[in-house]
Design a protein around this nucleic acid. Structure first.
Lengths: 145, 145
DNA sequence: CCTGAAAATATATCGCC
DNA sequence: GGCGATATATTTTCAGG
């Protein structure tokens, strides 16, 4: 993992569908060399996947919320969580609550219905997202030459 | 936006570097037709980008936390937020706190230093992530044939 | 580890239905 | 909207430093 690897990661974080040839031009290295470095980073698990980012709004999902949750039937709650399409992210956390989840629903009504379903497993505090300032800032610094 | 479009989105959410030819084989449609549908969804903003997902741990970032923040100097705080590489996501929220951010740092020590820097702008409650059950579940259902 | 060249794939751009 | 055919790019593979 040297500076060249970080540049490759930065390019792919910015646009995961960029061609390897284009990266190779950007960093002035042959295309097979970039391919090989990339393959190694994938094998090592530095890169965990490539995802298209979709607009919730354009897909009819107009409400995003973070739900803090306290459950004492963790196993059941986690099974419920995996089966719930509304839950996009699920984390175990320290503090008064033991879970935090990001929830995306069509409307505040469907959010309320989802929360009702959750309350079989424990209790919650909900923070509704009013606006997203930014998301998915890169973990790798834009290293300049 | 019909079922075919959803299948294309599902494929790209699962693997953003899949070739269009491979998608066209999966859904039994010609490659130019898939290319055209994809171009339209990009133009309409249904797809907002393509991102490589990186492993924080493999990049030396061992601490993830969600920080609830209350600030009454919002403008200054947001400028600080954009300039802080530790803040991966930043949201405005309803409730007692007006911001929620996802923060990724090398260690709990660097998290503490970051929180100290934040406290110029307001006060915070921090939930440290103990483990990630899942992240980035697809917004589009895996529609079966 | 890297480069360079050649073979195999993939994508962009047609004209046509 | 979608298809097939073709031209251009890209990726894979591999011999050689």
């Amino acid at each position: 993992m040297d500076r060249i690897d970080y540049k490759i990661l930065a390019a792919l974080h910015d646009n995961a569908r960029i061609s390897i040839s284009e990266i190779s031009r950007m960093i002035a290295m042959s295309q097979p060399a970039v391919t090989e470095r990339l393959r190694k980073m994938e094998d090592q698990g530095v890169i965990t996947g490539y995802r298209a980012e979709l607009s919730p709004t354009k897909l009819g999902k107009h409400t995003t919320a973070f739900v803090l949750f306290k459950s004492n039937s963790c196993k059941e709650f986690e099974a419920f969580g995996e089966a719930s399409p509304e839950i996009i992210d699920l984390y175990r956390t320290s503090g008064e609550y033991n879970y935090l989840m990001k929830v995306v629903t069509e409307s505040s009504e469907t959010l309320a219905a989802f929360l009702d379903a959750c309350h079989v497993f424990g209790f919650s505090t909900t923070l509704v997202v009013l606006s997203t300032r930014f998301e998915d800032k890169s973990l790798v610094e834009g290293i300049e030459d």
